[in-house]
Amino acid sequence: MSEIILEVENLRKYFPIKTGFKQVRYLKAVDNVSFTLARGETLGVIGESGSGKTTLGKTVIRLYKPTGGKILFNGEDIAPLPRKALKKYRKKMQIVYQDPYSSLNPRMRIRDIIGRPMKIHGLASTREEITSRVKQLLEEVGLPSEVMHRFPHELSGGQRQRIAIARALATEPELIVLDEPTSALDVSIQAQILNLLKEIQRKRNTAYIFISHDIAVVSYMSDRIAVMYMGVFVETGPTREVIGEPMHPYTKMLISVVPEPDPTKKIRVTEDLGEPQLPIDPPPICRFHDRCKYKLPVCDEKAPPKIPIGESGRTVACWLYGKGKTVERN
């Protein structure tokens, strides 16, 4: 693919948790995560609740200060920058949240919600200029321009999410983090928003980090996929390979339990699949060790390295692939 705009290296975000007198433990929400993203590309991040996917998205665009690691945005490391120095990067990196009911200021009219980022970043100055750009953006997201005089509560969930997208586009970003952007919407509305996002990407060549718990949605949207579990990437690679031939036992398990809208393909769960824990001071071993049915002795001793597979940039963090070993793929 084309030019790399984002390179994330060993990114860490730890949240301190006070557990007692002078005792501090850490919730290692993002732990040594690395990836790259090219212009116009979509990286999908799948994971269950508590996997750290939202923290990752927010840290990458510096809504959180990382605990460690590098975030090279167009070659410049923005990880250590103080707040003030970040302003010039903010307009290049935007985010769309899950809940369009809480992400839009209820007291502002749509025109001001979309126009404000332009003003803050000096992209439009006069009222007329802002209004005409807001009109263009509304058209781009498929809403009539009259909407600009309305308040968020007058709009439906799908319409609000279109506003959130228009607001993100207002600063002409190169990267947009989409954090479960359709999870609160009905399926027919979800389909509209997903196809709109694809259309926008095709026209603007914007890079997306698409975060969702919904594997079908992520695979529909993404060029590449990263599977996140308890703060780490357990597997990454081109969508077709990861979904078609999952390698990490966690990815396999996850894909095997996704229900299909087809009554002839029923899932049968006979064993206890367990549930993920929060990565609070996790021991330096495989984080999936307690739920893994292919576990080796080494899995309880050392954290698996990231093992490159083939030529497509695929990686898997699992001891099963450590010494050229393979397991049955099912």
């Binding site: 027919s188 389909a191 196809n195 079908a216 529909y220 299909e260």
Partner: peptide, 21 residues
């Protein structure tokens, strides 16, 4: 029919997005 065509399925190339609400 519309509902079924708008559900993303693993491996599906395209989903249809019906207009309106």
């Amino acid at each position: 029919e519309m509902l079924m065509k708008s559900v993303p399925k693993i491996g599906a190339e395209k989903i249809e997005s019906p207009p309106g609400s």
